[in-house]
């Protein structure tokens, strides 16, 4: 049996008890995979990944991270099991400096590797290293996404989940984000990416799952889905209706 980086079993989750938003989702992500999660606005993509991360109440089903049952673990425990999650919005601490954002995340690492890891992330994102004392609230959209990604990567996660990291970025910077994700995936990090930018996402991902009304409706290799007119029709049509 190959190792599953992430597994959800008949997952039901939502903000209120009697109002499930995610309605029975089975996800299976193998270690090293790059999976993109697509779907129209309001389909429940963010709710699904937030539930996986422990931010939205789970009503039924199970979440396994690297084979370990993490259904009801609080976020700080999931992080220690190899998960890193970059939310769609408010994904940096605006009142903390760049340096403090990174040190906070590094605090769960052993004492002797913290400083080195921060330096490695600065090397990866030189923009951040330029002014470490700057408050994150003053950064541009692109810099914020970099800081959010650096914050997530600092603990060397095995599974990285990102919710629309390209939202609000210029096409050029968005392309850079996708290229970086591909490079991170190439180092062995499993990636689950929620995206609206279907074309760009399918170009970098190996597999896609399409979520509609809280259910995983379609699944296939990125290449298959990119060429599937019916899926494109359904997805784009629903997206228009939702907008």
């Amino acid at each position: 049996m190959t190792a599953q980086a992430l597994e959800t079993r008949a997952l039901v989750a939502g903000y209120e008890r009697d109002l499930p938003i995610v309605r029975g989702v089975d996800l299976n992500v193998r270690a090293g995979e790059f999976v993109v999660l697509l779907g129209p606005n309001g389909a429940g993509k963010s709710t699904l990944v937030k539930a996986i991360a422990g931010l939205v109440p789970i009503h039924a089903g199970a979440v396994l991270i690297n084979g370990e049952d993490s259904t009801f673990s609080p976020p700080h425990q999931k992080i220690r099991r190899g998960l890193a999650f970059v939310p769609q919005t408010e994904n940096v601490f605006a009142t903390l400096t760049i340096e403090e954002n990174l040190r906070l995340a590094a605090d769960i690492l052993p004492n002797n590797v913290r400083a080195r890891r921060i330096d490695e992330l600065y090397a990866m994102f030189p923009d951040l290293a330029a002014r470490p004392g700057r408050r994150a609230g003053q950064l541009s959209g692109g810099q914020r996404q970099m800081l959010a990604a650096a914050r997530a990567l600092i603990v060397a996660p095995s599974l990285l989940i990102l919710d629309e990291p390209s939202a609000g970025l210029s096409p050029k910077i968005a392309a850079e984000v996708f290229a970086r994700l591909q490079a991170i995936n190439a180092t062995g990090v499993t990636i689950v990416l929620v995206e609206q930018n279907v074309k760009a996402a399918l170009a970098v991902a190996s597999r896609a799952v399409i979520l509609v009304e809280g259910e995983a409706r379609h699944e296939g290799s990125a290449a298959e889905l990119a060429d599937d007119p019916i899926v494109a029709e359904l997805y784009l049509g629903a997206a228009k209706a939702g907008a």
């Binding site: 991360a53 422990g54 931010l55 609080p74 976020p75 700080h76 992080i79 220690r80 890193a84 999650f85 939310p87 408010e90 994904n91 940096v92 601490f93 605006a94 009142t95 903390l96 403090e100 040190r103 906070l104 995340a105 605090d107 769960i108 914050r151 997530a152 603990v155």
Partner: peptide, 21 residues
């Protein structure tokens, strides 16, 4: 740091590894 982070955004603090309790 963890206190200031929790004060600004408890959910994100949890994601950064802070044990809120």
């Amino acid at each position: 740091r963890a206190m200031r982070a929790t004060s600004e955004n408890p959910q994100l603090a949890g994601l950064a590894g802070v044990d809120i309790r």
